[in-house]
Amino acid sequence: MNIFRLAGDMTHLMSVLVLLLKIHTIKSCAGISLKTQELYALVFATRYLDIFTDFISVYNTIMKLIFLGSSFSIVWYMRRHKLVRRSYDKEQDTFRHFFLVLPCLLLALVMNEKFTFKEVMWAFSLYLEAVAILPQLVLLQRTKNIDNLTGQYVFLLGAYRAFYIFNWIYRYFTEPHYVHWITWISGLVQTLLYADFFYYYFNSWKNNVKLHLPA
């Protein structure tokens, strides 16, 4: 465990918890894409298939449980909670899961480290995580005005991505045989998707104005 990895995990954890706390306290999910949240729940469910079979560390197991629990809780709130569900921008959040899930699944069947169910699902989860933010970014573009918490949520997710890249670079130079093309390329794609959002986020922060995205 290096400092970049820890910082990445912590910002990732904060992003999910900030969102869950927001939904729980203000009983609103305005501006949040249910499609993205469902995709993240699917990402965690398919990546952590090893949770009960391979023990890595207490830290690892606890983090996995928190990510699974919080992502499914968010989906539950947005779909089932009678107040929260009313604030959901259903008409604006029109991105189809199918268009992201199917290509990722096909890619995982072709590009994987081993052709076993667990390995294919693991590769699928990485490909899907890379693009799962797209429905959220589309929703941000459409609704234009972004409240602070939604902005912070995407900002924390972006920070998590950046720290993970530093973590890979660090591990590449410090650990022998640490080469993971699937993780790196999908991680890089994912980070690039945030670059555009970050550009506007920093501009609005620098000029001290409310974040607005161009059409």
């Binding site: 995990d9 090893d50 690892n60 996995k64 650990e175 080469v179 993971h180």
Partner: peptide, 10 residues
């Protein structure tokens, strides 16, 4: 060599 350490990341 085969890596077994990849799944220590979240």
């Amino acid at each position: 060599p085969q890596n077994n350490d990849k799944k220590d990341e979240l």
